[in-house]
């Protein structure tokens, strides 16, 4: 993602959210997808291996459908609060952009501490 691409608008729908970027592009992230890519230290390692990862995907898919509370972190990231499941991750805008484009935001690398 280019250095100057910023998130300008986030609209929460029932099962997904719509992101508007400073270059005018608009895309969406379904909530289970967002929750699957939680960058926190508990969820990160759960994506490291295929079997674990599948199990984790099943888990987030079965979480109740709800709109999260969104808290901006600095000018560079968002924190999502859910009534159930994990609310620890801080998502940098780059990460959200990668997720929205269907790319692996961890760059295919196993979890390392601090890599948001």
């Amino acid at each position: 993602m280019s250095e100057n691409l910023n998130l300008v608008k986030l609209e929460r729908m029932n099962s997904e959210m719509e992101l508007t970027w400073s270059d005018g592009s608009i895309n969406t992230i379904a909530y289970p997808t967002l929750r699957f890519w939680c960058p926190c230290a508990k969820c990160g390692p759960r994506r490291d291996e295929e079997e674990l990862s599948n199990q984790f995907q099943v888990e987030v898919d079965s979480l109740p459908t709800e709109k999260p509370i969104v808290n901006p972190v600095g000018g560079y990231a968002l924190h999502f609060e859910w009534s159930d499941g994990c609310s620890s991750g801080i998502f940098r805008f780059e990460r959200l952009h990668d997720i929205a484009l269907g790319e692996n935001p961890d760059g295919g690398k196993p979890y390392t501490h601090g890599a948001w």
Binding site: N6, L7, V8, K9, L10, R12, V70, P72, G74, G75
Partner: peptide
């Protein structure tokens, strides 16, 4: 900086 972050910038709906 805090003020401009909370007012302007990102719009959350």
């Amino acid at each position: 900086n805090k003020d401009s972050q909370s007012s302007g910038g990102l719009e959350i709906i």
